[in-house]
Nucleic acid binder design. Sequence first.
DNA 1: TTGAAAGCGCTAACAG
DNA 2: CTGTTAGCGCTTTCAA
Lengths: 340, 340
Amino acid sequence: MSAPTLADVAELAGVSRQTVSNAVNNPDLLRADTLARVQQAIDELGYKPNRAARNLRTRASHLIGLRITPVQEGTASVVMDRFVHSLVEKSGEAGYHVLLFTDALEDDPLTGYDELLRSTAVDAFVVTDTYLGEGQAAWLRERRAPFVSFGRPWDDDNARHPWVDIDGAAGTELATRHLIEKGHDRIAWIGWKKDSVLGEERRSGWLRAMHEAGLPTTGLASRVEDAVNSGCSAARVMLAEAGPTAFVCASDTLAIGVMHTLAERGLQAGDDVAVVGFDDSQVAQTVWPGLTSVRQPLEEAAVELVKALEGLLATPSQVGPGVMLTPTLEVRGTSGPDRR
Amino acid sequence: MSAPTLADVAELAGVSRQTVSNAVNNPDLLRADTLARVQQAIDELGYKPNRAARNLRTRASHLIGLRITPVQEGTASVVMDRFVHSLVEKSGEAGYHVLLFTDALEDDPLTGYDELLRSTAVDAFVVTDTYLGEGQAAWLRERRAPFVSFGRPWDDDNARHPWVDIDGAAGTELATRHLIEKGHDRIAWIGWKKDSVLGEERRSGWLRAMHEAGLPTTGLASRVEDAVNSGCSAARVMLAEAGPTAFVCASDTLAIGVMHTLAERGLQAGDDVAVVGFDDSQVAQTVWPGLTSVRQPLEEAAVELVKALEGLLATPSQVGPGVMLTPTLEVRGTSGPDRR
DNA sequence: TTGAAAGCGCTAACAG
DNA sequence: CTGTTAGCGCTTTCAA
């Protein structure tokens, strides 16, 4: 009735338990015929090593912890969904499973880490949202907890942990150049408040592209909350005061807000005023006439993170350089026609 | 350097290892003063029981497995994101963590289950998408694997496992009644193909509400793929041939398609023609002028699933009745004004 | 109420 | 190349 153990397989194959263990973990140590015999016994019984026993012995769980935060209702971004899937897939290929956890206490992200760490439930963590400055990375480093971070060490100075990140500035630069090539010269930026490092980074890409092209930026930048309404009102003000012909936004949420305002003014998104968002959310994909948007290469990020994780767990001492990935641009209707 | 063990705590507290174990698992067995002494030692050392050792001994992992499938790009629904979060939160409160896995082989959902099951990596599974008829439930039951399903046993006949589901028909009925109350009498249905049990169920809610109100339904129903474009073309045909004043859709994706067609015809969603979607996706929440949509009570579902899970693991023999939850309606702009 | 002994299933180390 | 021994950290007897 209960699951077969090493001993069962050993008996059936007529070898010792250790030999079976070797057959599973170091097949090359066995003579071909022994291996075959053991293998057959394994198949016959449907044997799979017991995780708990193996974990206890090897002091590893082959689990990686990922903290998730609540879905932001009313915003367009669902980056997490895609990222989680990619991460699960890639870590599965490397023999790891992903264990999810949330904050036990409302506002303290660290309790969750602490619990899993102290109970040796996971081998490592994948840390996200490092830009929020919650000190997750610093805290983990202090405890010598193995982790890789999706997000560069913004605050953290002399961080010595592997990280993978996506170059937001490159994304907005791509978006802005795209609009410049379409013939726009008054391109507005709708971004987040100044305290958002991510927001400032994305803004810098717009700025760079504009400067490179010798285009004006004064009065063309706005910094607001990440909400549809904020996008609306920012666009209203911008249209009235600066007369832009295109908008680059820090998020799809803001871009949707801009589109609302255009509709309200009887302007056609794309034909009359171009709009580009950020995140390639499902909103961007489905809204009419399709919102051009910067897409983060999350699958790639997952690949790199798992690679870093494997390296970290294999040789904890040596930490490779951070990996910076470049987003792509998904061109859709709101890019509008060529204006030249 | 390494984590403290029972023995460390026992030594510090001057008791036996067993007493420490009891202090953790059966505190009421100890005399108050002993307990206090042990507790202090635990705190002092920051002791947490080692998961692997405990798992090995108790033959439990306190992990529940959840299979996730790729995000559907180009559709509006992101039900999974919200559901996963709720599930992680609720199971955390019950002392369980959620372990994610994907299909190793492209099209075989069972290999993932099999592997986790045979290696005793999880205590139970939460199965979703039972309507797809992949036979997950039947397969798991056959192996006597503990699981609860989010989704009633559609095909499965004499299923004897706990389940929680959301009454889709009640959702569309709610939506349809809402429109009837607004004064609509020609309300069209845009749903999925006939082979979708979920689609047929949702359709039946529309049908029921229409019949109850004595309204005609002939020529007012359409069955298409779940894609924005399909929603567009279905709406085009419907407007031309049946002249409905409102649409109830099986998904937000289809509803968005309908809205595209309205825009194309110069019709105002809400004011001219009402539209209701299903899933309360982020698209529904952000699109202009807000898409009225049926919202699944996923948080509640998670609560019930965890409750069922706890019951199942406590007393595997007795299985309670399935739990059917009722969705709510999120009313937004596309409901339009009162027409009476 | 507390302690001693045994063993869950596995693998690392070493002996043969 | 194969077998023996020991023990990972915990909990479940059972005895004191």
